[in-house]
């Protein structure tokens, strides 16, 4: 289950976002589309992508109450799917459901928690949280930066921009200022860094 401190940190991270975004500067603000028609990457494709990106088998990547597949059984219609035979929903909802962001955040966090738990359980095959240094010590800035790059590389298939890197590194500073043990801080930061990138507009829409 998601632990309370993680939620607090998530809120902290959200607060940090506007400032970091502003730091990106006007030169990085793209011109608006003349014909905006951004589409939601529905839950099926969203989890399929995360499964490949984070190396978790699709059937294991996200289980509500540890038993129901997050898309097929839990949030199918909310996350843009259809269920013609049982529910009579022949086409995706014309407009995304009000609860879609909640469901999506929940799925993203569940996936990232799963990934980090697996990394801790099997450090030799860790995907995100690896090589952080001896237990109980704080990782180096180089490791933090490398991890940020790894998140963007895996999830968004591109390099993080300097602004994005600074944003997540700055977030690490905030997390590391907490009173938690060093290992917990690292774990929480990687989990939420993963969550931030996995739930970003860029990863959810196309």
């Amino acid at each position: 289950m998601i632990r309370h401190p993680l939620i607090v940190l998530a809120a902290l991270f959200a607060l940090a976002l506007p400032a970091a975004a502003a730091a990106a500067g006007p030169s990085e603000v793209p011109r608006n589309s003349l014909d905006p028609r951004v589409k939601l990457k529905d839950g099926d494709r969203y989890l399929r992508d995360l499964s490949a990106q984070l190396e978790i088998p699709r059937e294991e990547i996200c289980k509500e109450l540890l038993q129901y597949d997050c898309f097929r059984d839990a949030f199918r219609i909310v996350l843009g799917g259809v269920d013609a035979a049982d529910l009579g929903v022949n086409e995706p909802l014309e407009q995304e459901a009000l609860t879609a962001p909640i469901a999506l955040d929940r799925v993203a966090l569940r996936v990232c928690v799963t990934r980090v738990e697996r990394d801790l359980a099997d450090p030799k095959h860790a995907v995100l949280l690896r090589g952080a240094g001896p237990k109980g010590t704080s990782p180096s800035p180089a490791w933090v930066k490398r991890t940020v790059q790894g998140l963007y590389d895996r999830i968004l298939a591109r390099d993080a921009t300097p602004a994005e890197t600074a944003q997540l590194m700055g977030f690490y500073q905030k997390v590391s200022a907490s009173a938690s043990p060093a290992d917990t801080k690292v774990k929480d930061w990687v989990t939420l860094g993963c969550f931030a990138v996995a739930s970003s507009v860029e990863n959810v829409f196309y």
Binding site: P30, D49, A157
Partner: peptide, 27 residues
């Protein structure tokens, strides 16, 4: 990064992967 004034083949490539393959293009 996105050329909103013309056909953008990289954008189309990403979309084809998601729309028809059902997954994002790999790096």
């Amino acid at each position: 990064r996105w050329n909103v004034c013309a056909y953008d083949p990289i954008y189309a490539f990403k979309k084809v992967s998601l729309d028809v393959c059902g997954r994002s293009a790999t790096r």
